[in-house]
Amino acid sequence: MTITETSQIGIAILSLNGTLDALSAPDFRNNRSVIDPEKSVVIDMENLDFIDSSGIGAIVGASRQKRQPVGGIILSCMNDRVRKVFEITNAQKLFHIFDDTIAAVDFAATRQSARA
């Protein structure tokens, strides 16, 4: 899996490409923006082809590290395959999920400014 990181209005956007499983989960977990409890992160999943419970665990774990667990990690552009794994584990309940990355960034920015 490759992680491409960009930033917009102070929000980190991590674009995941490939497979998020037990093998690639540590890369995600150790990402600087993911570790930073103050940083709001949008995870763009448009090119994420496959996720398993280890991948879900990594994202859930990351959200728990955030000062604001529900708003700290925001998910976008999930394909049906990834969405189904979220639903099986009920993990979708823990996140705000957008079908558009820009909309997710706007949402995160609004939340961040409200917090400030």
Binding site: S53, R64, I88, T89, L94
Partner: peptide, 19 residues
Amino acid sequence: PEITDYPPGGYGLMIIRKV
């Protein structure tokens, strides 16, 4: 496992049983 309680594991088997 109920994910909203953040248990440490058990999702692998849960997924296998489901699919």
